[in-house]
């Protein structure tokens, strides 16, 4: 409902607008810089505008390899996170038992603890177990912290779904598997997909855990981090940044679009 008795004061309006600008101007600036002709510094305002950096990036083999690796990792980790997160949600959403809080905490822990702790822990575990770094070692790390996103989405949906739906289905003659296929899956589908989208965005962008579990491989965020530490190819980095913005915006917008009618939009993006 709209709170109409008193309109927002000008102070509040200005505060809200300034806050929003603070959140968005930096991203807009990156897009502006992608077209600058200046390639030695971050000069503002740009002395001129050009499209040539996009063309150069298109031809950069190393960047596309990094993109490919990141996509591969994000897709596989997302799939694993979907399976593990959905199972955990199905097991935990209703039943109360001793130790439930600890298990819930365990699911949240990988994203709640600083990434560096998760990263170093996995790294030392790999070295103790004698596992050489590979794409798989990265994926294991990513699936661990992506699980919670799917879990949150699915649990939110399960809580809003009447438990009677499952009972109604069985009451009408459907066994457990038929109930799963005809009732549970269609109801959870969009929540799982939304959770998966966010897990994808999370994985595609992750750099800290990746740093510790990647060995010699370069994912797109690692490439980006190297450029941040030692900027050598500023205009190229600008274009890659714009590319990353685009590729993460799509799943986020899609996830919020899918959950737009249900009130779990709020939970789904947490």
């Amino acid at each position: 409902m709209r709170y109409n008795i008193n309109k927002a004061s000008w102070n509040l309006k200005i505060g809200a607008i300034v806050g929003l600008l603070f959140l968005h101007i930096p991203l807009l600036l990156i897009i502006l810089y992608a077209f600058t002709t200046e390639d030695k510094s971050y000069q503002f305002p740009p002395p001129g505008y050009t499209l040539k950096w996009f063309k150069i990036v298109l031809g950069r083999e190393d960047i596309w390899q990094a993109v490919g690796l990141s996509l591969r990792i994000a897709i596989i980790s997302t799939l694993m996170a979907i399976i593990l997160g959905t199972l955990a949600a199905a097991a935990l959403f209703k039943k109360n038992f001793f130790g439930k809080e600890s298990i819930t905490l365990l699911i949240i822990l990988p994203i709640a603890l600083p990434g560096i702790i998760t990263g170093i822990s996995l790294r030392s575990a790999y070295s103790v177990a004698g596992i050489p770094f590979s794409t798989l070692t990265i994926i294991i790390g990513h699936a661990t912290f992506c699980m919670v996103v799917v879990y949150n989405n699915v649990v939110a949906r399960l809580r809003r779904t009447s438990p009677n739906l499952v009972q109604a289905s069985m009451d009408l003659g459907a066994n457990s598997f038929q109930t799963f296929y005809f009732v549970i899956l269609p109801n959870l589908g969009s929540a799982i997909l939304a959770g998966g989208m966010l897990a994808f965005a999370l994985s595609f962008d992750e750099v800290i855990v990746t740093t510790f579990t990647a060995g010699q491989q370069t994912t797109l965020p690692i490439w980006m981090l190297n450029e941040l530490i030692r900027p050598r190819q500023r205009p190229i980095t600008n274009v890659v940044a714009v590319f990353i913005i685009c590729i993460t915006f799509i799943p986020i917008l899609y996830a919020s679009y899918m959950t737009r009618n249900t009130s779990d939009a709020q939970d789904s993006l947490k």
Binding site: S162, N164, L165, Q167, A168, S169, D171, L172, F182, V183
Partner: peptide, 10 residues
Amino acid sequence: NTVFQDYALF
């Protein structure tokens, strides 16, 4: 068969 309080329509 059962008629549920919240109807439980799919």
